[in-house]
């Protein structure tokens, strides 16, 4: 867990790929991509359903650790449209049952637009475009805005460090540009993109139980 001050607020970055906002008791994550394994299986590509459980246990760990009262998913909650019989609904419903007291907020992402809204039974406060709180905009796309700070997801930021002899080591990361903070994907079967920070940016890489800030670096495209 790593503390930063940004946009006039205190934040905690968690290795489990979540961002905690203590003043609001709010946990923010991005890109769960629920239903991705079943989407693949339906196309004849075997992906174990345990990938869904792994994402849910990541959320469990984050929620337990922080004691958050609100969970915000910054888009791509669902991966693709699924029928009512899909196994993933049962799992999500069970999970929701164990966290009944939790307020659950979702901001739609590009995948959600084709996947459709989750069942009302999940009791989700659903925002089609964004959600603003104390002058901080929570949305899916990491776009810079003129007069507010943005927390976003979408790009699944990752970073590659090169060890002696140019051996690459890939890892998910938080990417903080001046007024945009991009969260790593929390979904277990999602993969990483690659950020190309400038010298002004801050990059925090996630391991299994540790978040480490890297020195200022520039990675050109």
């Amino acid at each position: 867990m790593l503390r930063i001050d940004w946009a006039g607020e205190e934040w905690l970055l968690l290795a489990g790929r979540g961002l905690y906002w203590p003043r609001r008791e709010m946990l923010l994550v991005a890109d769960t991509h629920f239903g991705k394994p079943s989407t693949f299986r339906r196309a004849g590509i075997p992906v174990p359903e345990e990938a869904t459980d792994a994402t849910l246990s990541r959320l469990d760990a984050l929620l337990t650790r922080t004691g958050a009262r609100t969970l915000v998913v910054l888009g791509d909650l669902l991966h693709a449209a699924l029928d009512d019989e899909d196994v993933v609904w049962r799992r999500l419903a069970d999970w929701r049952d164990t966290w009944r007291a939790l307020a659950w907020v979702v901001v739609a992402g590009n995948h959600d637009r084709s996947a459709g809204r989750p069942p009302t039974a999940f009791d989700i406060e659903y925002h089609d475009r964004y959600f603003e709180l104390d002058g901080i905009r929570l949305q899916h796309h990491p776009a810079s805005l003129p007069d507010c700070a943005v927390v976003a997801g979408h790009v699944h930021p990752g970073f590659v460090l090169y060890d002696v002899g140019q051996t690459p080591m890939r890892m998910p990361c938080f990417h903080l540009q001046r007024d945009v903070l991009t969260l790593p994907a929390v979904g277990a079967f999602t993969g990483n993109g690659r950020v190309r920070p400038t010298l002004e940016d801050r990059v925090f890489v996630c391991g299994d139980d540790e978040v480490i800030e890297l020195p200022p670096v520039e990675r050109k495209r």
């Binding site: 079943s38 339906r42 004849g44 590509i45 075997p46 359903e49 899909d86 196994v87």
Partner: peptide, 9 residues
């Protein structure tokens, strides 16, 4: 022994 629900090739 393992369930891969909704899988079909």
């Amino acid at each position: 022994l393992r369930a891969y629900p909704q899988y079909a090739r």
